[in-house]
Amino acid sequence: MKKWKCIVCGFIYDEAKGLPEEGIAPGTKWQDVPKDWACPDCGTLKSDFEMVEADG
């Protein structure tokens, strides 16, 4: 499971946790997050996220 970070605001998408309140189930891989999904905090596009090292 990996984490992805918004390069604009720092919001972290954690594959393990998903975003259940937005209909993205826990365990949803980054590539399965819809292409038109945008950062819930600042509206940045999915393509402007970068992978961050897993915390272990």
């Binding site: 604009v8 509206g43 940045t44 596009l45």
Partner: peptide, 11 residues
Amino acid sequence: PFVQPLSLAAR
């Protein structure tokens, strides 16, 4: 003047 249109335009 918002982030999402700015990101789309920059891309």
